[in-house]
Write a protein that binds this DNA or RNA. Structure first.
Length: 507
RNA sequence: CGGAGUAUAGCGCAGCCUGGUAGCGCACUCGUCUGGGGGGCGAGUGGUCGUGGGUUCAAAUCCCGCUACUCCGACCA
């Protein structure tokens, strides 16, 4: 008899299902500090894997890691008008430096001359350093990245998707020319798209944000957008071409080869722990989490069956033998990550725990397997099929493990890709059809299909449609790079239009 | 910050209307039988019922305030 661990399936209530997955996979929980999360080992392990893979890609493209302060003087934000306006409503501000006891109550004391902002993003403070480092065109480009935490005082937090404090990487670069900086912003967006696809098995659309939805202070904002299982869009990464805006406000100036003084062109780009949310909503199922092998902290979990006490030693040494046999196997250039779960728990419970956590392969080994020199292999992506469990000869498993992990990674990508491709409507040509399509105000899943997903259609380019979009609860997610160039009708205004955009509900 | 809801054991809930000294399922501990799709049987551990006040002989229960959380909106990665 199958027992449901999740309280809600995706079809019953998608937002609750999302929370349930995080709980049953033991990835994170709400902290007693309001709006903040505790990232637990399985969730943090996934983040560490993301960091490892992406960090290599960032370094391969010529960037170095460094670290800038958590505190940013308030005045720095005043230097860039759009920037301060964009972030003003969500800042945490340090105004005091100590506590004193007043009538037994601890009260802030030692007011600071100038308040400090806990960084919501680091453009201003990094630009300040860049201005000291850059004197000559020979000092350019400067290509930096930092892994850090940031704080944005969100009103309605949701684990991984929107929390007051979150972890991210933020890259910041400065260049001598417009073209070079623009190219850098594009390059890093492609790095993100490749990372999402190949490491996370999350296919994304790439494009540019419309003018009214840019990063505050940017000339252009590029983004990768992923489709969640409920058809909503999640911005999974952004890359900004900042032009000379921050260079001018922070005075990043250099002498050119012609001897003239010029302002640098800067970029910034980032991805966050929100990607873990993207992973859950892309691959999770009604049993829990499913983690793609590339980012799985443990790709293979060995669960020994130890109930027969007379055979504990034999089973454990057989499990150890398996673990060491696997240690020579590799996947995508890295040693295969194997966990032998020897905790004092019921083996069936351990098996289900790793299933809920989404470990790609769970291997059970027991007395029977020693006799047959075999193992029981469970492939997380086949949970609803008969082949979920499979008895495999020991040597066959060891020699096939790389291929098995590759198949799981590919299966997850293919599923996500199919969902993305099947749920982009290209055939909506008039405002009437468009309004009808999005008339369903609540997003939900029917069977395995979202009720409402993406529409690829025309936009006139008018920037004063924000109200109209808001009333329909949709956004222009991006202006895709691959434009068709065809003529058509703007789905919002009804005017003639040539620009293709992606319309969708979003997180 | 606006709208709605919730708050009782680690988790999910009942009890509240009609006040009388705390209950169920899962989890956890011990024993036992099981054993590769989430066990069975038996015995246990665990709660000043979110918080402050009021009514009452008596409050989880009735009244008032506060806080937190969840969902919907606005805002955002």
């Amino acid at each position: 008899m199958k027992q449901m661990t999740l309280q809600k399936t995706r079809e019953q209530n998608y937002p609750e299902w999302y929370q349930n997955v995080i709980t049953v996979a033991d990835m994170a929980e709400n902290s007693s500090s309001p709006g903040c999360m505790v990232i637990k080992p399985w969730g943090y392990g996934i983040w560490e894997r993301m960091q490892r893979v992406l960090d290599d890609m960032i370094k391969e493209t010529g960037h170095d890691n460094c670290y800038f302060p958590l505190f940013i003087p308030l005045s720095f934000f005043q230097k860039e008008a759009d920037h301060v306006e964009g972030f003003a409503k969500e800042m945490a501000i340090v105004t005091h430096s100590r506590l004193k006891s007043v009538d037994g109550k601890l009260t802030p004391d030692g007011q600071l001359e100038e308040p400090l902002i806990i960084r919501p993003t680091s453009e201003t403070i990094i630009a300040d350093s860049f201005s000291k480092w850059v004197k000559s065109y020979r000092d350019l480009p400067v290509m930096m990245n930092q892994w850090a935490n940031v704080v944005r005082w969100e009103m309605r937090p949701r684990l991984f998707l929107r929390t007051r404090e979150f972890l991210w990487q933020e890259g910041h670069t400065a260049h001598a020319t417009y073209d070079e900086a623009e190219k850098e912003a594009q390059t890093m967006l492609q790095v993100y798209a490749t990372f999402a696809r190949e490491a996370l098995a999350v296919p994304v659309l790439t494009g540019k944000k419309p003018e009214f939805d840019k990063f505050p202070g940017a000339v252009d904002t590029y983004c990768i957008e992923a489709m969640m299982q409920d058809g909503k869009s999640l911005q999974a990464g952004t890359s900004h071409f900042l032009g000379q805006n921050f260079a001018k406000s922070a005075n990043i100036k250099f002498q050119s080869s012609q001897g003239t003084q010029e302002y640098a062109y800067t970029t910034s780009w980032g991805v966050t722990t929100r990607l873990i949310g993207a992973l859950i909503m892309t691959h999770g199922d009604d049993e829990g989490m499913v983690v793609p092998p590339v980012v799985a902290p443990h790709q293979i979990v060995i669960v020994p069956l130890l109930k027969d006490k007379s055979k504990i030693d034999a089973v454990m040494s057989y499990a150890q033998k398996l673990k060491s046999a696997l240690s020579s196997a590799s996947f995508k250039g890295e040693r295969v990550r194997v966990k032998l779960d020897d905790r004092q728990k019921e083996s069936v419970d351990k098996m289900w725990e790793w299933t809920r956590k989404g470990a790609p392969l769970v291997i059970e080994v027991g007395p029977r397997d020693i006799e047959n020199n075999a193992l029981m292999v469970r492939d997380r992506t086949k949970i609803n099929l008969k082949e979920w469990k499979e008895i495999v000869p020991f040597d066959d498993f060891v020699s096939s493990v790389t291929e098995r992990l590759a198949t799981i990674q590919n299966t997850l990508l293919k599923q996500a890709e199919d969902r993305l491709n099947k749920n982009i409507r290209n055939d909506i040509k008039t405002p009437g059809e468009f309004e009808k399509y999005f008339s369903n105000s609540n997003v939900f899943i029917e069977g395995d299909k979202p009720s409402v997903a993406f529409v690829r259609g025309k936009w006139s380019g008018d920037n004063d449609i924000a109200e109209k979009l808001k009333s329909m609860k949709i956004n222009i997610r991006c202006i895709p790079f691959d434009q068709s160039g065809t003529q058509g009708t703007c789905l919002i205004t009804g005017k003639p239009a040539t620009v293709d955009v992606i319309y969708a509900r979003s997180y």
